[in-house]
């Protein structure tokens, strides 16, 4: 099913081009040149792309209003305002902030990440090397032998956390804090040990991991 994107942009040239590009990428785009009437399209929108400098109400005010009424719809700010203050103000309510000029591939990638993060795209099945993951059923299967791989609670939490952030590098402290819910202490080896056990279960060759990639000195990444 095509996802509906609500796009609010007053610049005709940019608006036309972005709408066209996103449509080509398989989205259904509703493009408005001001915030007027935006709320009417929110019911069907899966994601909002919002400019900040708009005639009438600015993007901050519109975004805050939309977020308040539809907290489950992600908002991506797309603006030529690049100052840290603007970004901080924007990220109070918005879920991502892309500055102009931007590369359309980057915009498309961020849109997809947001849709996935908000569960707007439910990947029925993720296939990574020899294992298939049914996220909705908490089921991980080794597709070579068709046997279920049983993970401990922590291993499963780590793995799904990585899967929910595909192609992103996650730092040790990010993973630790997301899974354990307490601050990461520098030098703590707990996460490393868990990842090693996890790899022993899912990788063909745990010493040369294919699924969970180690980015040395930084963290881990799962490419999808």
């Amino acid at each position: 099913m095509r996802k509906n994107l609500l796009y609010i942009e007053d610049n005709k040239e940019i608006g036309a081009w972005v709408s066209e590009d996103l449509t080509e990428r398989g989205y259904h785009v509703i493009w408005l040149t001001s915030g007027e009437g935006a709320i009417g399209h929110m019911e069907s929108a899966d994601l909002v792309i919002l400019d900040i400098m708009l005639p009438g109400l600015d993007g901050f005010s519109i975004g805050q209003r939309l977020k308040k009424e539809f907290p489950k719809t992600p908002i991506l700010l797309l603006s030529a305002r690049t100052s840290i203050d603007d970004k901080l103000q924007g990220l109070h309510f918005a879920d991502d902030y892309v500055t102009k000029p931007f590369h359309p591939d980057e915009l498309a990638a961020r849109v997809e990440v947001l849709l996935r993060r908000f569960g707007k795209i439910s990947p029925p099945l993720i296939q990574l090397a020899h294992i298939s993951i049914h996220l909705d059923q908490n089921l991980i299967v080794d597709s070579r032998l068709n046997v279920e791989i049983i993970l401990t609670a922590k291993q499963f939490q780590i793995f799904t956390y990585l899967l929910r952030h595909p192609n992103q590098i996650l730092t040790k402290e990010q993973i630790y804090e997301a899974v354990w819910g307490s601050p990461y202490m520098e030098g703590d080896k707990t996460l490393m040990v868990h990842i090693r056990h996890l790899r022993e279960k899912i990788e063909k060759n745990p010493s040369q991991p294919q699924i969970i990639e180690t980015i040395r000195g930084i963290g881990y990444r799962v490419k999808q």
Binding site: N11, E13, I14, W17, V18, D21, M53, S79, A80, R81, T82, S83, T99, K100, P101, F102, H103, P104
Partner: peptide, 14 residues
């Protein structure tokens, strides 16, 4: 900054 970036965005897009 904003006013200079807007045309840049258009150039980039085209």
């Amino acid at each position: 900054s904003h006013d200079l970036r807007t045309p840049l965005t258009t150039i980039r897009g085209h």
